[in-house]
Design a protein around this nucleic acid. Structure first.
Lengths: 163, 163
DNA sequence: TAATAACCTACTAATATACTCGGGTAAATA
DNA sequence: TATTTACCCGAGTATATTAGTAGGTTATTA
């Protein structure tokens, strides 16, 4: 089982999408700026998210990504599954052939753990995350930061044009 | 967060120890044979388990390893923690500096997940595993297999001596 | 038609896993 | 006391994955 930045990035990006999808599609460069994730890496992750029908893409200027369905109908487990192979804790992917064709001594333990994790992450929708106080606070800070950043870069442009 | 063969091997080996510790210390080569884990790799894992005071070692012929305390007082979480760094699902190890010094959007989610996993694995002792029906069945098969294997090798020796 | 942003493929540095190898050292047995 | 057993320790290595680069193509809009 693996749960690394890959899965975390995917969930973070999807949550960013959920938070900013009121005003049309969200571009990956916006997400990249707000969440500090490399643009090219986001592209790779969103290719997988799109294949799993979690997001819809809109090409061209003003384009970007949009959630494929209601925030309440997308769950963290689905996002993690889409980019990682799975949140499976067994080594044999549930096939029970962990010890040379036979079941290993601890196979069932890892099955139980997998179920535990999957149940937990399956119970959390993007809607639920958006409602959380801690998420709202971080999101607000990020919005301010990115506004300040774009303001600062605008000032630089203005200064360059004037100077 | 990582839960790979490393942690699984460690739990499997410790469970093997718990199952066979009635008749004195258990050697790593016995565990290696029964569980199909490389001996050298086991040595590395047991070095860590010993540092965490989960096992005691007995050197010399007839030596091996022994659980440091009652089977009911050793929990899966402790074993996984001993060989992996942790079962922490956050990238920042709980420091909340996941996004360039600040808290990332999904930090609290991964904290919750970490707690979930840790609570689950902390609730399972070696004693509990030993009692499980599925564990007993696999253990019985492994004992038969290893008896047959040692019998077969003995037959070879006998045949060589006679022939 | 110029700019934008998705889309796609391939490559790469760094890291971790799951080992192997080769030597030690301590303790029991013959 | 010699030998065996089995722990102990460090170095090295193949493989895989992660996280990220680089450089291009396609579709859309202004």
């Amino acid at each position: 089982m693996r749960l690394t930045t890959k899965g975390r990035y995917a969930v973070t990006a999807m949550l960013d999408l959920a938070l900013h999808s009121d005003s049309g599609p969200v571009s990956l460069s916006d997400i990249s700026n707000r969440q500090g994730i490399s643009l090219s890496y986001l592209e790779q992750l969103f290719a997988k998210l799109r294949k799993q029908n979690l997001v819809l893409s809109v090409r061209g200027p003003g384009g970007g990504y949009r959630l494929s369905r209601d925030r309440g109908d997308i769950f963290v487990a689905q996002i993690v599954d889409a980019v990682n192979e799975s949140v499976d804790a067994t080594g044999c992917k549930g096939r029970s052939d962990c010890q040379g064709g036979n079941t290993c001594l601890t196979h069932h333990l890892w099955c139980d753990l997998s179920d535990q994790i999957h149940d937990f992450l399956s119970g959390i929708s993007l809607e639920k995350l958006v409602q959380r106080q801690d998420v709202r606070e971080v999101a607000e800070r990020q919005d301010n930061d990115s506004k300040m950043a774009s303001c600062a870069s605008q000032e630089k442009i203005t200064a360059a044009l004037i100077g």
